[in-house]
């Protein structure tokens, strides 16, 4: 009896904590269907009008498009650059490989706001023709690639260490060249890890506020930066809430699919 009560109590406490963790997302979605302009509680009526307005609003669509474009390119570059680096670190035993791994993962230790402070100064000094890199698309993509790379390298290293190295040795002893071994044995086996690192990298870039608000300038306003500056100047807008609900629902669905198909919770 006492055990049962304890078990019930621990379930109840855990449930409440989980509710707290998910509360902002749940409330955001609930509010997006609120018919009133103001965020009264309890909500006053159900309506889809904010969603309708979103589909007519070009500015929000544009900033979502800017975000998707930057995040896709950065995730692609991140994977193209990060996978070879992770493979080299994990499979070639060379002097300084530990040091190099520490350097590659170090942006995770250095606060991104300090990194952004260095970047804004550096990019303002690099000139191509008359333009500085500050506030340009290449500058922004480079910066996002560096935010993503440590995650990609870490996730690919993890999936390489889950993989059985003997399979590579077997292929090579049967006469396969290293390049062929990589593409026919290693790559298929670690592809879930690579796909996950790309998806995760995309989300890290897509949701970034700090680095983008330092170096994005006025020309490339990504969706979260647009939300951020709007909220600071004009307060919370129901239209913005509806857009964010669409974004957060997509993120939840993608995360659950990744978990179901590739158990990504092992990697993050």
């Amino acid at each position: 009896m006492k055990g049962k009560i304890l078990r019930f109590l621990s379930l109840a406490v855990s449930g409440l904590i989980l509710l707290y963790i998910l509360l902002p997302i749940l409330i955001l979605i609930a509010n997006s269907f609120n018919s009133s302009r103001f965020f009264e509680f309890p909500p006053t009526g159900f309506s889809l009008k904010w969603y309708q307005r979103f589909f007519q609003n070009k500015e929000y669509q544009n900033s979502l498009f800017v975000s998707i474009r930057i995040a896709s390119i950065a995730a692609l570059v991140g994977v193209l650059v990060g996978v070879p680096a992770a493979y080299a670190i994990k499979r070639y035993k060379f002097k300084g490989s530990n040091f190099l791994q520490a350097v590659f993962l170090s942006p995770l230790m250095i606060p991104s706001i300090v990194g952004a402070l260095g970047l804004i100064q550096f990019l303002s000094m690099v000139r191509i023709g008359k333009m500085t890199l500050l506030g340009s698309l290449p500058g922004l993509i480079l910066a996002h690639t560096v935010i993503i790379l440590p995650y990609v390298i870490r996730m690919v290293i993890t999936s390489l260490s889950y993989m059985d190295e003997d399979l590579e040795a077997a292929a090579q002893s049967l006469g396969a060249k290293p390049v062929r071994t990589f593409f026919e044995i290693t790559l298929p086996l670690i592809s879930p890890g690579i796909i996950m690192s790309a998806v995760f990298g995309f989300m890290v870039s897509f949701t970034d506020v700090v680095v983008t608000s330092f170096i994005g300038g006025a020309k490339f306003v990504t969706y979260p930066v647009r939300m951020y500056s709007e909220i600071r100047t004009e307060g919370l807008d129901p239209l913005a809430v509806a857009v964010s609900s669409v974004v957060v629902i997509s993120i939840v669905i993608i995360s659950l699919i990744c978990e179901k198909t590739m158990q990504w919770s092992r990697f993050i």
Partner: peptide, 26 residues
């Protein structure tokens, strides 16, 4: 375990901006 771990990871995956918007309305 994987399902609940994913739910717990959502504040990180969803990003600070969306969480903050939710909190602001609360």
């Amino acid at each position: 375990k994987g399902f609940l771990t994913t739910l717990v990871a959502l504040p990180m995956i969803g990003g600070a901006m969306i969480q903050t918007m939710g909190w602001m309305s609360v």
